[in-house]
Write a protein that binds this DNA or RNA. Structure first.
Lengths: 179, 179
DNA sequence: CCTTACATGTAATAAGTTACATGATTGT
DNA sequence: ACAATCATGTAACTTATTACATGTAAGG
């Protein structure tokens, strides 16, 4: 089975499983939480990918049971999977990030500063991004209460810090144009 | 022919054609230049979409010829298309922007600040984002040399300003962790 | 002449979303 | 009991990318 060269989801899953063995459900949660700011994937994309990756020999699973009979599949890396992960992280990342922002696009079609739709649009986004910023800051406080926590998951700290800064910029930018 | 509810590309094309009648080629350029920071689409996605949109009555085209025989299709909005555009811009945009950033994800899998891969990775990205920042600033200078230019395409100015600020933040953030 | 840009399309594949479908466990 | 969460999967559809394919126009 051939897995395409640019299958980024695959590498992200390898990275997540390298941290600790996890179920598909756990992975889906990670895409909502810690890495959701920079990559998204639904469980309907994750489960088939896990099967493909197991077939190609990069991961394996162990069946476990929770409670009386709830079956779980705990996936973990094979040596081949680990090697593939290391190679991916070491590779250059020459592509600038791809953003799809529908709101900003709408702004593009606002021709003058006096357009009556402009201020309500900015207000709406300010509410949204202020909430997101507060949420991310809250997460930083709970996940990284001290330096020890930071040192033990430095990458996680970095991306959370980046996400917070990005949201802060977004809010500041909106406020620059709010009347 | 049913065009799905969330077909965002369609609305973006409506917005671009509302500015002035354009060819598919022109639209593809716009996705590389002025709006490329916030949405991407290739010509292979654009040409079929233009056909669908014409079939559904939102746009029409006029055949023109450049030079001796180079055929072009100049697309423009119908009243129905214009109405659809106005409705889209006025709608709320409750979804936060979706970003896919492979580099930041790789950082997530760097466990400690001492990892020897970290600094080269940050350096590489700094080169990339500094270049992008310089490019965007250059564009602002040429496209908006004075207040009149800003007033006449305010939305365009806004999104270019946003993109510059975003890149500036990215560079600043990288430099915060560079040794 | 030759290269770059203009111009339009289709085919094949890959990636991603939404909906459908089912069942167990935990906490209230 | 009931709701929320845990847990796994497939089906149908939409969206997006890469490659294939062709030809004209403009500038040096």
């Amino acid at each position: 089975m051939i897995i395409g060269q640019r299958n980024r989801l695959q590498y992200i899953i390898l990275g997540l499983l390298n941290q600790r063995p996890q179920t598909g459900y756990d992975l889906a949660k990670a895409f909502e939480n810690e890495i959701g700011e920079f990559w998204q994937a639904q469980h309907s994309q994750i489960y088939p990918m896990l099967k493909r990756m197991e077939t190609s020999g990069d991961i394996t699973h162990e069946d476990t049971v929770t409670g009386e009979k709830l079956a779980k599949k705990q996936y973990s890396l094979t040596p081949a999977g680990h090697a593939k992960l290391v190679a991916w992280v070491s590779e250059p990342s020459p592509e600038l990030s791809a953003t799809k922002d529908e709101f900003i696009l709408k702004l593009y079609f606002i021709k003058t500063a006096a357009d009556p739709r402009l201020q309500p649009m900015l207000q709406e986004q300010a509410v949204l991004h202020r909430a997101q910023l507060a949420h991310l800051k809250q997460r930083r406080e709970t996940v990284f209460p001290n330096q020890t926590a930071i040192d033990q998951a430095y990458g996680h700290y970095l991306i959370l810090d980046h996400a917070i800064g990005r949201e802060q910029y977004y809010v500041d930018w909106l406020e620059k144009f709010l009347r």
